[in-house]
Design a protein around this nucleic acid. Structure first.
Lengths: 340, 340
DNA sequence: CTGAAAGCGCTTACAG
DNA sequence: CTGAAAGCGCTTACAG
């Protein structure tokens, strides 16, 4: 591959001049010279070495996105938003699926630091693990000190700029919605308790029940991974323990899909026998049968915002956290409670 | 951040020595010296600069993955497989969603070349566009000449190592399956014709029909994007033109999901009134109602293989293309043809 | 407006 | 076993 030097040689100018015209510097260059350089660059099919550039400018134009799992549509849609915003500004994105594992996540962060990425976007909720949180904050603090941008798109222990999703409020208002439909025995399918977002959603459910004058009943709670099979397993538990429930609120759409499937397999009609609601509003929520009532998180916009916030920080700004309310999307999977 | 020089200074040795112990060189280093270096590195929280390393070794440990759309579960699942294999070998992956746009794709490739990635994995089917194909091949040929690895995971114009999915055969055997169930009027929901994979699947459908002695009927063909809404729109067209069809084969699961939804909205029973089959077997295929009969592409394994093939090439090998047959997964969305 | 030179943080022959 | 030095491909004061 041709280097700056090769272009300089061919254009009969110094590498400094070549650099100035090719890197879009504001340093003045005579027009004829500029033309000669451009011409030579084209002829040699010159492609600047981004590593060398990054080494000297200490800007790599790389964003690292740490997600729980890129194959989970929630994160995939978010990363797409992030990617589009990044790309529009000449940035690339590294995907890092941590599987909610503290060690994997820390290893990924260290690697991102090695590549001297400009920004790290934490897309998943923080893992509840003291020593992990301490080490992560240590790494990120050092990174920020050197001018790196850290953005959080889910509840986190590390204080950083980002978007604050109203997880608790979202879960609470969905619970209210079910209560308003006449449901009194509402099962809750919770996500992994070691994820902060899970806890907040559970807290919102509980809060809404109690505000309504109902007591929180542990028989109505089952826990699992944020996956369809996690949801399916949880609903089996629930049906065993509380056969009288008339509605189920799942902590994620993926879980709700598993719930829906399990109910269909058992011949339980939704929403006639049991209403089902989800959380996230991933694309498929509108396409399952029946279409899923859910709490909407605008994943694409969220990813987009993540990149924008990162750019603000890199530009020297100090963006305040944005609060994002999570509206309910009513579809066909919820309906009035069956008379008992 | 501490540099090699800082570590060398603190350990009272030369940077050469530090480099040798920290980069895992096979060059002999006395044990006491090694210990001193390790100690100093820890104390300084040394984190090697991957850019500088890449600049001199001409190996960046980066793989670029070009997909049509990372928010499409088909690609997200594949990228996860790619990421896991890459990560296990100390590689990072850039995600590049081209939206099937020739310019976007070429721009991404140029950028990847600028970052001197070690490998480029083309995950989506080639776009049928002469000048794009020519330019792409030119870029990739240059890249390969410099030792870069190119891997294709879908039918492509650029000849490279990779996996050959039996798209045609997969579509043909699904068509046979429907024929065997007694269906004679089988609608086909095709993907965008400018994608090679789309054409192959259509060809397989047609081939199976003709092998069976039926004539291919254009009234039974509708085209759209590889999305749920693309599938929904196509099925509307189809139902208008050929109200007598008893089965529909969609070119992707995403499209099939749209078909399923549209049929449900119209109160058409699946599979009693119309059988529906998809293509891909993404995770959700097993979770929609009714669970989708589909042609299985092992996306995760495919991504995994992509990375492995790349590593083989980088190790100097010349892996032969692997053919991958696509088996049918029978679920509840297909059944015997309704007696007419 | 142009260029010579230093430097970013590494690796690796080469010499000892 | 250890180190001095060149070099990877850029950018950017500094001097003219």
């Amino acid at each position: 591959v041709a280097s700056l030097g090769d272009v300089a040689h061919r254009a009969q100018v110094s590498v400094a001049t070549v650099s100035r015209v090719l890197s879009g510097s504001s340093h003045p260059v005579r027009n004829v010279t500029r033309e000669r350089v451009l011409q030579a660059a084209t002829e040699l099919d010159f492609r600047p070495n981004a590593l060398a550039k990054g080494l000297v400018t200490t800007r790599t134009n790389i964003i690292g996105a740490i997600v729980h799992d890129i194959s989970d549509p929630y994160f995939a849609e978010m990363v797409r938003g992030l990617e589009d915003a990044a790309n529009a500004t000449g940035y690339q994105v590294f995907v890092c699926s941590s599987d909610r594992d503290p060690d994997r996540e820390l290893t990924y962060v260290r690697t991102l630091l090695s590549y001297r990425v400009d920004a790290i976007v934490l897309a998943g909720g923080v893992i509840e693990d003291r020593s992990y949180q301490r080490e992560l904050s240590r790494l990120l603090a050092g990174f920020e000190e050197e001018g790196g941008a850290v953005v959080t798109l889910a509840p986190h222990s590390h204080r950083a700029s980002g978007v604050i999703l109203e997880n608790r409020e979202g879960a609470a208002s969905m619970t209210h919605h079910l209560l308003a439909l006449g449901h009194r025995r509402i099962g809750f399918v919770a996500g992994p308790p070691q994820i902060r977002s899970s806890r907040l959603r559970l807290a919102g459910y509980r809060q809404a029940l109690e505000a309504f004058g109902l007591t929180y009943d542990e028989q109505l709670l089952a826990t699992g991974w944020f996956t369809p099979s996690g949801g399916a397993a949880a609903v089996c538990e629930l049906l065993d323990r509380a056969p009288d429930l008339t509605a189920i609120l799942a902590s994620s759409d993926a879980m709700a899909f598993g719930v829906l499937k399990e109910l269909a397999d058992r011949g339980i009609a939704v929403p006639e026998d049991i209403s089902v609601a989800g959380f996230d509003d991933v694309q498929m929520a509108a396409y399952v049968q029946p279409p899923l009532t859910t709490v909407r998180i605008p994943t694409y916009a969220l990813g987009n915002a993540g990149a924008e916030i990162a750019f603000e920080i890199l530009a020297g700004g100090n963006p305040r956290p944005r609060r994002l309310p999570l509206p309910i999307v009513e579809r066909a999977s919820t309906g009035p409670a069956k008379a008992s």
